[in-house]
Amino acid sequence: MKTWELRRRAGSLVQFLLLLFAVSVAVFLLLKLIPGGPLDALLPPDATEEQIAAAEAAHGLDQPLIQQYLSWLGGVLHGDFGTSFQTGQPVGEAIAERLPVSLEIAFLSVLLALVVSIPTAVWAAYRPGGIVDRVSTIVSSALLATPSFVLGIVLIFVFAMTLKIFPPMGWVPFSEDPAEHIQKIILPVVTLAASEIVLFLRILKGDMMATLQQDHVLSARARGLPTWRILSGHALKQSSFSLVTVSGMVIGRLIGGTVLVEAIFSLPGLGTLAITGINARDYVVVQAVVLVCAVGYILVNTLVDLTYPLLDPRVRKEKAS
């Protein structure tokens, strides 16, 4: 492996670790700044100073702030996120139960958005002003003006309550009943994918239109190459940088940002877990959910950065030089 590649990877690793450290500090201190404290939900309003001191000692809140952080971080690194003040359940178990739900919904939503937006954007850019371009512009404008929770309610009313094609809400694990699992996940995935389709479509269409005017694409046309080869081999790959970047950001955002959709469709994901923790002032749960979502966001976007040299070899040449 070349020296420049080793230096680049070492630099990326150091940057990644520093970013994780900064996120952990921010998550730990953020909840310390919230008025009140985690013991407010456990102790009665007329608790004595002795009761408060005993509760603080039991939960390690009487220690210096740095020691609290180090103890919390050490537990996190060993997979121990603490115990819920309200339920007594280990927070790691609660996250392990709900994280697959949020991950599945997020990835399927982005996958559906890509499947719909990529061919639509490619053809709209190749035939600007054509029927595909005009229809996609109208539909995307309508979707852009419709909030996700409104679209979710409309889909439930039309496809669940009126046509009775899909169940309105709830969740069944794939291992228990694959057919019912697929039926229950379709409407939430479509709801989340709708707004992302608009985003992906507009980004890729703009980049494709610019790429199609570049010299190497015009040269390929002059050589008589097939249209599908020009669009897929010459234009699409080069135009995918922004799309890949935004896709990674969207996946990271959706992992913990599906609160409204999870509430509408009664899905047991991280969003509902966070809302439950906030309402109950269960700070340990909220802290763990925020940390997992932030780390997931960083990991996804780090993986996205690693795909750039695969999309365009010129990136490797630029870094090598």
Rank of each mutant, 00 (worst) to 15 (best):
K2A: 13
W4N: 12
L6E: 06
Q15M: 11
F21W: 14
A22V: 14
A22F: 13
V23S: 05
F28Y: 05
L31D: 04
P35T: 12
P38C: 10
A41Y: 03
L42S: 04
L43S: 07
Q51I: 07
A58L: 12
G60A: 08
D62C: 05
V76E: 05
H78I: 06
G79S: 08
F85P: 01
P90Q: 06
V91S: 12
G92L: 03
P100E: 08
S102V: 06
I105V: 13
L111Q: 02
L111N: 02
S117A: 15
I118T: 12
W123D: 00
A125C: 04
Y126W: 15
P128A: 09
G130I: 09
I131D: 00
T137Q: 09
S140Y: 00
S140T: 15
L144C: 04
A145L: 04
T146E: 03
T146H: 02
F149K: 07
L151Y: 06
I153R: 03
L155P: 01
V158G: 04
T162H: 09
F166R: 08
P168R: 05
G170S: 11
W171E: 03
F174Y: 12
S175E: 12
P178T: 12
A179I: 14
E180G: 00
H181G: 07
L187S: 05
V189L: 06
S195F: 07
V198N: 09
I203E: 01
G206V: 01
T211Q: 15
R221P: 01
A222F: 03
A222P: 04
L225H: 03
P226H: 11
W228F: 10
R229P: 01
I230N: 09
G233N: 07
H234P: 04
Q238Y: 01
Q238L: 09
F241T: 13
T245K: 03
V250L: 08
I255K: 05
G257P: 03
T258W: 01
E262G: 06
A263D: 10
I264G: 04
F265E: 07
G269H: 02
L270D: 04
L270A: 09
G271M: 07
L273C: 11
A274Q: 08
T276Q: 14
T276E: 14
G277A: 11
I278E: 05
R281N: 15
R281S: 12
V286Q: 09
V289S: 07
V289F: 11
V292Q: 00
I298G: 05
V300N: 02
L303I: 14
D305F: 00
L310A: 13
L311V: 10
K317F: 05
K319F: 10
K319Q: 15
